[in-house]
Design a protein around this nucleic acid. Structure first.
Lengths: 226, 226
DNA sequence: GGCGACCCTCTCCGAACGGATAGGGGGCCT
DNA sequence: AGGCCCCCTATCCGTTCGGAGAGGGTCGCC
């Protein structure tokens, strides 16, 4: 396994007396344990100023109140968080802060999409703590950060698990199946007629080798979809 | 929302010199970030000696090598870990160490089963860092620890969503639903006629609050059945 | 231009599903 | 004994599925 991308500390660690130019980071995560530990670590070991928020609205409020951060870390699974939409929302806030996602489950495809949208980085919680400080500095400098081995599995999964053989509409229909909806409900959600949904459902059955909607839903779940 | 528990520096950080009678804790977790941060926190704020392991075999090897710990923390989701079996395995090792689980997903029913098996505690990762040190000390004293509100939802869920309200036949029918089988197939598997299966299916819908077989299958999966 | 995708709409039909209702049978309890 | 729960069987009916046709539409690419 390759060494993940990290930057050289280049210079000595700041003493805990922070210079006026020290980094300011906002950490938004509902896991108190992780959040508190991160604060302690970044502050004591990295000489980085931190603030925290337990959910997305708090984080947004903090930024809109005028606080300026070099970097904002968002947990992808916390109250108020809606995946990449929330990421874009925070990035669009005034202040021009850079935003990175931090994830426990670590979905490589989401990592790629986030980086594609301009996220500052994607930090799996499996990241060694030492790498974290480097990553934070790296991202605050305007670079994008993600563990290399992490993205490598992303490409492997992008071809393999094959939910990508489905068309956009078929994926949307499958999403409805997983939710236990009827064809009629799915049709309403998608703004099309029921026969159309039935067609999409039928074709996606063939693609994923299912014989009925329940099997299709279970297969989608197994694959980690939705 | 309450002020999140943040580590109040309250005085100076302990110098790294520890008392001889301090507690020794082994932390086994594959999340480097969390693990490193926990170490730093427990050592600096709690005056607790720590060792770490990135997976279950390493932890077991460390104990079998003769290391003595007051408490062992095991992540329920890490390499080599097989739920409660691994918990019992570690508890059975020589040394008589007490073992607690630490979990990110936080399944109340697993918490209760773990405590029933004699685990020292069950720590969700949503636990505030300040509570953690108290919990560790508490468990090292021989008590069992689990967050109260956590177990309260456990009881609520134990009575509520539990599949145990289903009769034997209904459970067997539900098993067929999860497999994506038709009523006719289920009937053949169970050795009964199709109308009977339809009745079981219908009644179990009411019990688990589903409206069709796909929803029932998903609910069963959510609950960890099959 | 033609070609191949993906998408949408519609019809037809047999099968399966979801729900209600009405029985009969065996245990287990008071 | 009767009462209760669970299991099994059955019939009826309206809806939904699953599968098959046969169209027409928009793209992008050769």
């Amino acid at each position: 396994m390759l060494e993940q991308s990290r930057i050289a500390p280049e210079g000595t660690l700041q003493p805990e007396r922070r210079a006026a130019a020290s980094l300011r980071v906002l950490i938004a995560d509902d896991h108190d344990l992780l959040r508190d530990a991160l604060v302690l670590y970044l502050e004591s070991e990295g000489g980085i100023e931190t603030e925290t928020a337990p959910d997305l609205p708090s984080a947004v409020a903090r930024i809109e109140a005028g606080a300026v951060f070099d970097l904002v870390l968002l947990d992808v699974m916390m109250p108020g968080m809606n995946g990449l939409d929330s990421l874009q929302e925070v990035m669009a806030l005034r202040g021009g802060q850079r935003v990175a996602l931090i994830s426990g489950t670590g979905s490589p495809e989401m990592a790629e999409r986030a980086l594609g949208l301009g996220a500052a980085g994607y930090l799996p919680k499996t990241l060694p703590a030492k790498s974290l400080i480097n990553a934070v500095r790296f991202m605050a400098m305007g670079e994008q950060y993600a563990p290399l081995d992490f993205l490598r599995t992303a490409q492997a999964e992008a071809t393999n698990p094959l939910a990508s053989r489905l068309s956009r509409r078929e994926l949307e229909a499958l999403k409805g199946l997983v939710a236990g909806k009827s064809n009629k409900e799915i049709a309403r959600d998608l703004g099309v007629t029921e026969p159309t949904v039935k067609l999409h459902v039928k074709t996606l059955y063939r693609k994923i080798d299912a014989h009925n909607r329940t099997q299709a839903a279970m297969i989608a779940r197994e694959a980690g979809l939705f």
